[in-house]
């Protein structure tokens, strides 16, 4: 029997203890014998054929229940059951629950559902969303309301925009003036042709600091604007007490000059 078990395990590419447990479960479910199931798996035959007692293999070494003597007048208190051999110590440590995946008729007859329909629905909604939310509105810039706005940047200002993005300024500042009460005083509304929407985009998504779309137009007029911006970026809390602006003293002179030029172009 151990040879049959080993052969079956090899044929199935599965550890012997798993095969043994599975075979016992299959035998119990089908009302056949464990020996028959193992023989079938080892020899490639149907386990149903093993239900024929005439095909039962030689008895395995499991202990037979003690036969009751016929002269015993006492009634049977409990049914006699055939005990299974205890699992080896190693098998106990690595015992597994074997789940047979259905290959025949399932226990529950469910309606056959269309996978193609489900996948098509999912992908169709995705495509519809991309079209409706991104592609169509992005290409509908012929609306008179969306006029092309801001002038192009000089080379230095362009470099300054790169510094702005590299330092992550767009994470704390927006350049996106909206037609709402909260944005009154921030300057002209940001339209679709705005420079902040151009690639690489600087429109931002939250205001930890103020909106900068038209910041140059709001700087104090009695000061040297460039010097004011430079000083603020280098020592922010000395210029504005309690400011949440982090200092950028670590920027090189060239990067600072470019960044200042860019900020002053935001009007």
């Amino acid at each position: 029997m151990s040879e049959l078990l080993a052969t079956a395990a090899t044929a199935m590419g599965t550890p012997q203890d798993l095969v043994e447990r599975s075979a016992r479960a299959r035998a119990a479910a089908q009302g056949t014998t464990y020996e028959g199931v193992i023989s079938a798996w080892a020899g490639g035959q149907s386990s149903a054929a093993a239900a024929d007692p005439s095909q039962a293999p030689a008895a395995d070494p499991q202990p037979e229940p003690d036969p009751k003597p016929e002269s015993n007048p006492e009634p049977v208190a409990e049914p006699v059951t055939q005990s299974e051999p205890p699992l080896s110590a190693q098998a106990q440590v690595t015992a597994v629950a074997v789940i047979d995946l259905p290959t025949g008729a399932p226990l529950l007859e469910g309606k056959h559902e269309s996978f193609a329909g489900l996948l098509t629905g999912i992908l169709a909604l995705l495509a519809a969303a991309i079209l409706l939310v991104v592609v169509i509105p992005a290409n509908s810039q012929g609306d008179d309301r969306h006029i092309v706005g801001d002038a192009s940047l000089s080379a230095l200002e362009d470099t300054g925009r790169d510094v702005y993005l590299q330092q992550g300024c767009q994470y704390c500042h927006t350049q996106n003036v909206r037609p709402v009460v909260a944005d009154v005083g921030l300057g002209a509304i940001t339209e679709t042709g705005a420079r902040s929407l151009a690639d690489p985009a600087t429109f931002g998504f939250q205001r930890i600091g103020p909106d900068l779309a038209r910041v140059a137009g709001r700087l104090p007029e009695d000061l040297d604007a460039a010097e004011y911006v430079r000083e603020f970026l280098t020592h922010p809390t000395e210029v504005v007490e309690g400011s949440a602006q982090p200092p950028y003293a670590h920027l090189s002179d060239d990067d600072m000059a470019a960044l200042v030029a860019y900020v002053l172009a935001l009007r």
Binding site: I122, L126, V133, V134, A138, Q141, A194, L197, A198, D199
Partner: peptide, 26 residues
Amino acid sequence: WWLPALYFVGNVPGTTGLGTQLQSSF
């Protein structure tokens, strides 16, 4: 399926103007 699609839409280069903002928000 949505993860690669969203990632693709959000990262496809060459958009500009409102398209960039919509790409990001999407």
